[in-house]
Simulated assay, not measured.
Amino acid sequence: MTDLSALTRLCPPPTSPPPTDWESVEGALGRTLPIDYKRIIDAYGSGSFCGFLRLYQPHASTEWVDIAGPMPTVIRRQLEEDRAQQKNPVPYDPQLLIAIGVTDNGEYLFWVTDPEDSPDQWTIAVNEARGPRWFTYDGTLTQFLIALLAKAVNVPMFPESLQALDPFFQPDL
């Protein structure tokens, strides 16, 4: 069973999300994106997991959750400022981080893009909203979502109530 199959069994996707022209998206970003991320977006489209976690994606409902929109750059600049001012220590070089999602509480999810030329090996980092804590998951985005939704991993800055929910995906209307 593939990781995407495990994710869709655990948390069924909506029917027929709109297709994405990945070649143009990656061209606009100037980088190749992880295959598992593209498969998640192709399967689920725009929306949120458990009404809490939203992935940035191409052609999102607003520019603030569009992976090619301003938000990933704005977040990286803030991390660079925090690191330069030694405020809320960032455990990674901000240049290695690409914001890929946000929670309703304001935590950001990142790819740790090391090695940069191997996107399918990128791992996941989460930073605390308005705080110094970081959580790192040594696996792909799909593996992180499976572990989170199956309650096999507990992200310390996520609310405990998330652990009590049955997994669901809420598509944007």
Rank of each mutant, 00 (worst) to 15 (best):
Q78F: 03
V74E: 12
D66H: 10
Q78M: 11
Y92G: 05
D114Y: 08
L96T: 15
T103G: 04
V102S: 14
Y56V: 03
Q86T: 08
F110I: 00
L96G: 05
M71H: 10
D117F: 01
V90L: 01
P94H: 04
L96Q: 13
H59V: 07
E81A: 11
V90P: 00
L55S: 00
Y108N: 15
T113C: 15
I100E: 03
Q78R: 14
Q85L: 14
A99G: 09
I67G: 07
L109P: 03
Q86E: 14
T103W: 07
T62H: 11
Q86H: 12
G106W: 05
R83C: 10
V74Y: 10
R76V: 02
G106S: 06
Y92E: 05
A84L: 11
K87E: 09
E116Q: 12
N105I: 08
N105R: 12
S61Y: 11
E80P: 00
G101A: 06
Q95A: 15
V65G: 07
T73P: 02
Q95V: 04
D114R: 10
T113S: 09
P115Q: 01
P115N: 04
G69D: 06
V102M: 13
P72M: 02
Y92V: 03
T62A: 08
I100K: 00
L55D: 05
P58G: 06
S61Q: 12
W111M: 01
G106R: 04
E107S: 08
D82N: 14
T73G: 13
L109W: 00
Q57C: 11
H59P: 00
I67V: 13
Q95W: 00
N88L: 13
A68T: 12
V65A: 08
P94F: 04
G101K: 05
I67M: 06
T73Y: 10
W111G: 00
E81C: 07
V65H: 09
T103I: 07
E107T: 00
P72Q: 08
D93G: 01
P115V: 04
V90K: 03
T103F: 07
R77N: 12
W64T: 10
Q78A: 12
E81I: 13
L96E: 14
T113I: 05
G69F: 05
Y108D: 15
T103R: 08
D104K: 11
P58E: 02
G106V: 03
Q78W: 07
I67W: 05
R54K: 14
V90N: 04
L96S: 14
I98M: 15
D104I: 10
A84M: 09
T113N: 09
R83W: 06
E81R: 13
V65W: 09
Y92H: 15
R54W: 07
E63V: 14
G106A: 07
V102Q: 14
D82C: 09
L79A: 02
